[in-house]
């Protein structure tokens, strides 16, 4: 099975297709088959067949290396903060897991949207506080007014949601992205999935938490992906690269991911096509 879904590259053949919005030689970035474990082919290879509505052109001011960091994580941050939570200027946002791949995107995007009158609070390990503060986070520890939006990019502790009435406004939205940690068992992953489903469907009069909760798998909508790319071009968020590996050193890249010390993205250079 060829893994991974986030890619950048160059369009090299349009023969046999009805695609009109790309030309040979275009720099593109996008998301490959999300269920690659089922179909057997992800994007960590030299050539792929990509769905035209799962990708778009790379903005001229972004390198192909940086572009590879955005597809799934930038799109996820965009969908939850902009499309679902409808974040606006002055809002207060809490991001659990601020130094992860989605977290670094979410902090930057949230900072751009809420502006100087809003608040972006994030958690991270002590060694990474300077990094996420430079991305736009205001505080690492919260102790004042409730938040309008909570984005949980870690997702391993249901108590963060079940206790949320203490720190999330009644009209606020709790978004869960992370669900399965490295090393999870089938049982722990199933239990977590059931918790997330119950959080969305159990009404308050049956003991549900009186705060709105959403959790949904990655679902690519081309117009949203293009909107995310527009924000990348405008500088709303930038790539945060933890480390870069050659294609032949891919296993070392996975060792780095498994170390749990990653800040942002681990990138593999398959062919430097710049």
């Amino acid at each position: 099975c060829v893994p991974e879904i986030d890619f950048s590259g160059i369009v090299c053949d349009l023969r046999g297709t009805k695609v009109k919005d790309f030309n040979t030689g275009d720099r593109v970035f996008g998301i490959g088959p999300i269920g690659f474990r089922n179909v057997g082919h992800g994007v960590l290879r030299e050539y792929i067949l990509a769905k035209h509505d799962h990708m778009t052109k790379v903005p001229d001011n972004i390198s192909l290396k940086d572009a590879a960091c955005f597809p799934a994580t930038g799109y996820t941050a965009y969908c939850f903060l902009v499309e679902k939570a409808k974040l606006k200027k002055g809002d207060r946002v809490f991001i659990n897991g601020g130094s992860g791949a989605v977290g670094v995107m979410a902090i930057q995007l949230a900072r751009t949207i809420v502006g100087s009158t809003g608040l972006v609070v994030a958690t991270c390990s002590p060694a990474k506080t300077d990094i996420i503060r430079n991305l736009g986070a205001d505080e690492e520890h919260y102790s004042s007014r409730p938040f309008d939006v909570i984005l949980d990019t870690v997702g391993n502790d249901h108590a963060l949601y079940s206790n949320s009435p203490a720190y999330l406004t009644p009209a606020g939205l709790f978004c869960t992205i992370g669900m399965v940690e490295i090393g999870s068992t089938v049982w722990s992953a199933t239990k977590r999935l059931l918790q997330l489903l119950s959080a969305m469907i159990v009404p308050v009069y049956l003991g549900g938490v009186p705060r709105r909760h959403i959790f949904e798998p990655l679902n690519i909508v081309h117009s949203r992906f293009v909107a995310m790319a527009q924000l990348v071009e405008e500088g709303a968020f930038k790539a945060v690269i933890d480390s870069t590996y050659k294609f032949t050193d891919a296993l070392d890249a996975y060792d780095r991911v498994m170390s749990r010390k990653v800040t942002g993205k681990v990138v593999i250079e398959v062919n430097d096509l710049e």
Binding site: E4, I5, D6, F7, S8, G9, I10, V11, C12, D13, L14, R15, G16, T17, K18, V19, F22, V28, I34, V43, L44, R45, E46, Y47, I48, L49, A50, K51, H52, D53, M55, L64, K65, A67, A68, C69, P71, A72, T73, A101, G178, M179, V180, E181, I182, A253, Y254, V257, M258, V262, K265, V266, V267, I268, E269, V270, N271, D272, L273, E274
Partner: peptide
Amino acid sequence: VEVPIPTTCADDEVLVQISHVSLNSAI
């Protein structure tokens, strides 16, 4: 393992030569 270059495209697909890939630990 040698992975062959795709030679045919569906109507909604394009052939892309990969430059960079970023890893997703949670997927």
